[in-house]
Design a protein around this nucleic acid. Sequence first.
DNA 1: GGCTTTGTTTTATA
DNA 2: GTATAAAACAAAGC
Length: 288
Amino acid sequence: MPELPEVETIRRGLERYLVGHKIQGVEVRVAKLFEGDAKNIIGAKVVTIRRFGKGLVIDLSNKYSLAIHIKLTGQLIYRGAETKGVKVSREKVGDELPNKSTHVIFKLDKDAYLYYNDRRRFGWIRVVETSKVGEMPFFKSMGPEPFPSAGSGQVKLTLELFKKIVGGKKTVIKPLLMDQTRIGGIGNIYANDALFLAGISPKRSAKQISKEEAKNLFNAIIEVMEKSFKYGGASELSFVNVLGHEGEYQEHALAYGRKGEKCSICGGKIEKIFLGGRGTFFCPKHQK
DNA sequence: GGCTTTGTTTTATA
DNA sequence: GTATAAAACAAAGC
């Protein structure tokens, strides 16, 4: 689902299209998704877009920021002069905006709009003072991440740090990878695919992973995420970029969602099990 | 209409 | 108190 590469894809889009715009108004259609005082962002200009793991922060010119988490099905779609004639994904977005999943609308200057759509309404948008973003529990407790965003102050996940995080832990490796307080940004898709690529069983205990294997796993995390940047993220559920376009990673996923299919590495058969309550895809033949 | 889905938060346990 | 595991929660499509 939307994990680091998807959120980064959105961040890059916002950086390109949203920065410089002034927010003229906010229409909140579903109140529970929007916390804080909307008045505090009216009249302010968008200055920078930061990402913390799977979270986004839009910094404004007046010392306030918008902290956003899209969870499973959130979309941020920009419409303005530059996107005139650009078609959005009919399947993921529909024919027109706003639509029935549009819960917050930001009216911008130059007759542009930013729509927040969220089919399952799990996400959130919070107005918060820029200086206090780091105090929000979700951001404060986040671990190092592989591709820290400029200005976020997030610690970069290096091989040395990764070995330290994995080393000696009693937990099972896959849930550990997905624990945002340990490593920021990895969710179910990339945890499955990184373990697959590194040839490590998701059921392994972290303490049983050798230094060499940890290195392979670290490199695999970087590799699958870079691959996803290339394909514009994974659009298995509702993910689209700010232009409303889908990503293509799901078509190139290694293990995720491939139950019963032939393993591309060893020819084995991909199985699905549950680990830590989450669907887990792996090849029992080569992932030991 | 019960089941499934995931990221995060909360509660329980060792 | 700390580390880990499990359960709860959000809402909607099938």
